[in-house]
Lab assay of single mutants.
Amino acid sequence: AQASVVANQLIPINTYLTLVMMRSEVVTPVGIPAEDIPRLVSMQVNRAVPLGTTLMPDMVKGYA
Score class of each variant (00 low, 15 high):
55 L>A: 00
33 P>F: 15
25 E>G: 09
4 S>L: 02
45 V>F: 01
48 A>D: 13
64 A>T: 10
7 A>T: 11
3 A>G: 13
32 I>W: 02
34 A>D: 14
49 V>Y: 02
59 M>D: 15
29 P>W: 04
28 T>H: 07
37 I>P: 01
58 D>Y: 11
60 V>M: 06
30 V>E: 15
64 A>R: 09
64 A>Y: 03
41 V>D: 05
20 V>T: 14
62 G>V: 05
24 S>A: 12
45 V>S: 13
43 M>E: 05
3 A>H: 10
47 R>L: 12
43 M>S: 05
11 I>P: 01
2 Q>M: 14
16 Y>W: 12
60 V>P: 01
57 P>L: 05
38 P>F: 11
33 P>R: 14
58 D>G: 14
41 V>T: 12
9 Q>K: 09
40 L>D: 00
57 P>H: 10
13 I>R: 10
6 V>R: 04
63 Y>E: 03
4 S>A: 03
33 P>V: 08
30 V>C: 04
50 P>R: 09
17 L>I: 14
46 N>Y: 14
15 T>A: 13
12 P>G: 12
3 A>R: 04
4 S>I: 01
52 G>I: 02
63 Y>Q: 04
4 S>W: 02
41 V>F: 11
32 I>V: 11
50 P>K: 11
49 V>A: 11
18 T>V: 05
43 M>D: 04
57 P>M: 10
43 M>H: 10
57 P>K: 06
35 E>W: 08
34 A>E: 12
12 P>T: 14
3 A>N: 13
33 P>C: 04
10 L>I: 14
55 L>N: 00
63 Y>I: 03
14 N>R: 08
51 L>D: 11
63 Y>K: 03
7 A>V: 07
10 L>K: 09
3 A>I: 13
50 P>F: 14
37 I>A: 11
44 Q>H: 05
54 T>A: 07
61 K>E: 08
57 P>C: 06
7 A>G: 05
16 Y>F: 12
51 L>T: 08
37 I>K: 05
15 T>V: 14
47 R>C: 04
48 A>T: 15
53 T>M: 11
36 D>F: 13
55 L>M: 10
55 L>H: 01
40 L>Y: 02
53 T>F: 13
56 M>I: 10
22 M>T: 02
32 I>R: 01
39 R>S: 07
26 V>C: 04
2 Q>W: 08
27 V>N: 03
37 I>Q: 15
61 K>Q: 12
38 P>S: 06
63 Y>G: 04
63 Y>F: 10
22 M>G: 00
51 L>W: 14
16 Y>L: 12
38 P>I: 05
4 S>R: 02
60 V>F: 06
61 K>M: 07
29 P>Y: 04
35 E>D: 11
22 M>Q: 00
42 S>C: 06
56 M>P: 01
46 N>H: 13
17 L>Y: 01
54 T>H: 05
39 R>H: 08
6 V>T: 11
16 Y>D: 04
35 E>P: 10
19 L>G: 06
14 N>Y: 14
11 I>M: 08
43 M>A: 08
40 L>I: 12
9 Q>S: 10
58 D>E: 12
35 E>S: 10
13 I>S: 12
37 I>H: 03
64 A>F: 04
59 M>S: 07
15 T>S: 13
48 A>I: 14
43 M>Q: 12
33 P>A: 09
31 G>V: 02
28 T>L: 09
63 Y>M: 04
19 L>S: 06
29 P>A: 08
38 P>E: 12
61 K>D: 06
30 V>F: 15
35 E>M: 05
44 Q>T: 07
62 G>L: 13
3 A>E: 15
21 M>S: 06
48 A>C: 04
33 P>I: 07
42 S>E: 06
16 Y>E: 09
41 V>L: 15
44 Q>V: 11
56 M>R: 10
31 G>P: 01
45 V>N: 05
37 I>R: 08
34 A>Y: 12
5 V>L: 04
9 Q>V: 14
26 V>E: 15
24 S>Q: 09
39 R>L: 10
6 V>D: 01
24 S>D: 15
47 R>Q: 08
20 V>C: 10
57 P>S: 06
17 L>A: 00
45 V>Y: 01
34 A>F: 09
60 V>C: 02
36 D>R: 06
50 P>C: 05
55 L>C: 02
2 Q>K: 04
20 V>N: 15
45 V>Q: 00
31 G>I: 02
19 L>F: 12
26 V>G: 05
8 N>W: 08
37 I>L: 15
14 N>T: 04
8 N>Y: 09
57 P>T: 07
6 V>F: 02
12 P>E: 14
24 S>Y: 05
13 I>C: 04
1 A>V: 11
41 V>R: 06
37 I>M: 15
58 D>W: 11
17 L>K: 00
36 D>L: 06
38 P>Y: 10
15 T>L: 03
60 V>W: 02
19 L>C: 05
21 M>T: 03
47 R>H: 08
24 S>M: 10
7 A>R: 01
40 L>T: 01
36 D>I: 08
28 T>W: 04
20 V>M: 12
15 T>E: 15
22 M>H: 00
5 V>Q: 01
23 R>T: 05
24 S>F: 13
58 D>N: 13
13 I>G: 11
57 P>D: 09
61 K>C: 14
12 P>S: 07
38 P>R: 05
2 Q>D: 12
61 K>N: 12
10 L>G: 13
31 G>L: 01
22 M>P: 00
8 N>T: 11
45 V>R: 00
57 P>I: 07
50 P>V: 07
36 D>T: 06
29 P>E: 09
49 V>Q: 02
9 Q>P: 00
30 V>N: 09
45 V>H: 00
55 L>W: 01
10 L>V: 11
27 V>P: 02
31 G>W: 02
41 V>P: 03
26 V>I: 08
9 Q>C: 05
3 A>C: 05
24 S>V: 09
11 I>Y: 01
39 R>P: 03
58 D>I: 12
64 A>Q: 14
50 P>Q: 08
40 L>N: 00
14 N>A: 09
38 P>A: 07
14 N>P: 00
2 Q>H: 09
49 V>T: 06
21 M>G: 02
54 T>M: 08
15 T>W: 09
28 T>C: 05
53 T>W: 15
61 K>Y: 14
55 L>G: 01
49 V>H: 02
32 I>G: 00
4 S>Q: 02
27 V>G: 03
6 V>G: 01
37 I>C: 03
39 R>A: 07
30 V>W: 08
34 A>T: 06
52 G>M: 08
50 P>H: 14
16 Y>P: 14
27 V>A: 07
28 T>G: 06
34 A>S: 15
61 K>V: 15
49 V>C: 04
60 V>D: 00
53 T>V: 14
51 L>P: 14
59 M>V: 11
54 T>N: 02
22 M>N: 00
45 V>M: 08
2 Q>F: 13
3 A>K: 08
4 S>K: 01
42 S>V: 07
